[in-house]
Each structure stands twice: as structure tokens, then as C-alpha cells.
Design a protein around this nucleic acid. Structure first.
Lengths: 146, 146
DNA sequence: ATTTTTGCAAACCTTTTGCATGGAA
DNA sequence: TTCCATGCAAAAGGTTTGCAAAAAT
């Protein structure tokens, strides 16, 4: 969950121009609770008659990724999606039912990585942990159905 | 690292036919030390005049993934690659210089996942940990250059 | 002989690029 | 007014699909 204002300010502070398409995209991202793909934003922009160009969406997503406001994740299906996130090193839990996602911190994974480095002999420079499951809301909803 | 025989047997035991293209592909996979993309196998097959069809490569990779002999990973660049692997739950360390990859076990990540589940309130069903760094061989080679 | 698998080509989908126009600073 | 960003359209990748021909059982 991230505010469109935060996105717009990030563009601004990084020296990028604050344009209408970028404002519009920021709002579309804010409106999406969970993860989203470029295609979904594009559809949203058409539906709300903002009519962003395909290239603009891709270019903005790239910039936002560089700025660290969103992060690209790979869903189990192989799709490329993005999630809004905080800058510090962290990981995401993604709900496989509704797509909502939450940042989680380190959780002690540093030790695990160190252990695996020792075991494999590799010098590990980066890692990516992606977690998939059911968010609290979806858990409740599913229970209610029984 | 996996033998082409193991791949061929896997096709056989799963009830798939053992065909020339599948044998050829098995050898190409065996020949690749690290990870590989569909495109790379396709190039290899042209270079060695095996002339596998694009569709055959994709279809075989899909089957092998279902059989659990290879696993699809997402490189930091966003490329889709595959690595040969054992069936049990595990993770991969991928060398960002040469592409070699090694299976590593759990390394205690179960506890980390449990901790992150507790913290986020999600019910975590699956996770994916990808590690990137330098393999022992590349470490040695880089040191030699100094 | 039967059924699966292949090869080909075309379709499809996602992402990138070049360039003229329009908008922000 | 000067650059940066956009839109468009085309190109570029990567992956999938339908179907007739070929190969495996």
C-alpha cells in the first residue's frame, strides 16, 4: 500500500518531471491493493479513460523500480508483476487468492544465507525470497464459507 | 549437473515416448553446466545441426519441469531460465559470472518462513529462495587476476 | 495400426525502440 | 525556450497453438 503522493514526490525529488501521465499512473498504482502487472495498469488506464500509452507505462514502471518504490516479483505462474514497497531490504508475502502483498523484514534469513554460502562454497551477493500463501483477510473469508 | 540418461529415463518412466529429439535435448541439457534458457538450447541445437524445432524445445522443457527434473528460475535480469535439479525441496545458488548452479538444501529456512508467517499473519503455503553470487571457481579465477 | 510427437508457420503476448509532437520547467 | 516525456507505431523477443506429416509403440 503506497500513496500516489509518495510516488509523485519520488519522481519530483529524483529530478524527473511531474507530468500528467505520471500523476495518473501513481493513482492507478495506489488503487491496486496488491501486486499488478504492466498490462493490468494499462487496462485500468483505458477503463478510466486516461489512455496512457503502453510505452509510458513500461517506462514509468522502470523508473519507479530504479527509485525503489516498486519491486518486480515473479509470480509462481512466471508472470512478471510489481509490488509497492519500502526501500530497505526486505521480502514480500503475496496472497495467492487476492494478490494483496505485505512487506516483511529479514526474519533471520541472513543466517540462513550465510549457512548456505558455507555449504555451497559460493560467495553470495544477493538473494530473493518470495513467499506465497493466504493473507489474513482471505483466511477469514474462506473459513466463513464452511 | 544431470546426466542425459537420467532425463531420457524420466521421460520413459513417466510414459512419454523416447524420441530422437528428446534424446538430443537431453544431451544438450547435460552439456550445459549451469542454467540455460530455451533460446540457448535452441541455438545449441542449431549449432550442432540437430535442428530441433522451437516448439519441441518449449514443449520438452515444460514436460521436464512437470517431471521435476528441471526447475524454472528467474534471473535478476528478469530472464526465464532453467536449472537441472533433484526432486526434493531445495533452493539454488546461481553464479552470476558463469551461470553454474548448485542445489542447496533447506539451511534452516523453515524457521524463517514460520517467523515471517507469524509476523505478517499470512498462512504461507510456498516460498522461493533464489541466491546469486560467485561460485568457487569464479572466485579463484578472479583472485588470480590481481 | 494406432497414438504420440514433431516441425512448421502463424498467432500471440509482452516489452522495447525511434522519432516527431507536446508539455514541464 | 529548452529539454524531457509522451504517444504512436513498428520492431523485437519470447512463448504458444493448430495441423498435417513422421516416428514410436
Amino acid at each position: 500500500m503506497i500513496s500516489s503522493d509518495a510516488i509523485v514526490s519520488a519522481f519530483d525529488q529524483a529530478g524527473y518531471r511531474v507530468t500528467q501521465p505520471r500523476r495518473a499512473l501513481a493513482r492507478l498504482i495506489e488503487a491496486r491493493a496488491g501486486h499488478f502487472t504492466a498490462e493490468e495498469l494499462l487496462r485500468d488506464s483505458r477503463r478510466s479513460r486516461l489512455g496512457l500509452a503502453r510505452a509510458t507505462v513500461f517506462r514509468s514502471l522502470e523508473t519507479l523500480t530504479e527509485l525503489g518504490l516498486i519491486e518486480r516479483i515473479d509470480l509462481p505462474s512466471g508472470e512478471h508483476a510489481f509490488v509497492a514497497c519500502e526501500a530497505a531490504h526486505h521480502h514480500h508475502v503475496v496472497c495467492s487468492r487476492c494478490g494483496r502483498s505485505t512487506d516483511v523484514g529479514d526474519g533471520g534469513i541472513g543466517q540462513v544465507v550465510a549457512e548456505l554460502a558455507r555449504r555451497s562454497g559460493y560467495r553470495i551477493d544477493s538473494h530473493r525470497l518470495e513467499l506465497f500463501g493466504l493473507c489474513p483477510i482471505c483466511q477469514t473469508e474462506l473459513e466463513r464459507k464452511h
